[in-house]
Design a protein around this nucleic acid. Sequence first.
DNA 1: ATCGATGCAAAATTTTTGCACCATG
DNA 2: CATGGTGCAAAAATTTTGCATCGAT
Lengths: 142, 142
Amino acid sequence: MYPQLKKFETAMKQSKHHLTGPRKTVFSALLENDTLSMAELVRACPEFDRASIYRTVQLLEELGIIHRLQMGWKYQWELSDDYHDHHHHMSCDRCGRVFRLSGNKVLENKLREATATLGFQMRNHQLEVQGLCDRCQPKIKT
Amino acid sequence: MYPQLKKFETAMKQSKHHLTGPRKTVFSALLENDTLSMAELVRACPEFDRASIYRTVQLLEELGIIHRLQMGWKYQWELSDDYHDHHHHMSCDRCGRVFRLSGNKVLENKLREATATLGFQMRNHQLEVQGLCDRCQPKIKT
DNA sequence: ATCGATGCAAAATTTTTGCACCATG
DNA sequence: CATGGTGCAAAAATTTTGCATCGAT
């Protein structure tokens, strides 16, 4: 049994929401799969109704437990940093594979600095990088 | 007449695509509005069919002329850096306003470095920051 | 026992597609 | 004048909603 599940259950109780089947299942699916699209999520929870999955996802997003990721023309969901290591994504323009880009303290501090200069208090951020992966670089000649 | 429009026309010709009404109108709408959702874009081009707007947006995205931005549960389109200054976005969790965060050379170089270490050749990136703006910070006590 | 959450069915919205016709290069 | 692009209409896919019932606290 995942320790993250315990944490999730606590978070739900603290925010005064019931701990129900769809909620546990959606959370577990994301825990096991890193990122999932809405359609995949619906498929991953066949015992529950589509509408419940949508409502669950909306709730978890409001609570900051999951967040949305843009993957080209579509989007996916993943658990927030409270449940996963903080990381970003790098997707290859050529082969479409997505790689994790782990958090970088220097980078994040620079970012915090830059926003603070403008009077902002940064709480969260997303960073997506596109380019060519190791394997695909030689294939393109310019 | 915007100089960017000229550039856009050249880009279209070079990629062997016709320069048509829907394409010019979609481009101009984004030039004048910074970011627009799909629905807003359709509304901004009432003389053209919804399907054409969709097809135009898909084409411009493939050509790298525009790109998608995630704004909470919805998304918006904006022109790429070739037509706008390179910048990111910072949205306030409290009042919802969105601010431009201009590009930061130091930050970008760090990022390029970090990805290069992993064998990637970075071509593009998006950065979204959430937090509290100047005006909203005092309102929240923790 | 009480609300909050769910399932179901239906509506609303968003996106995609096929095809005949038109217009750009 | 040859394609590539468009409008129109329809289908497909995605997301939202109302309501009766169920179940977690």
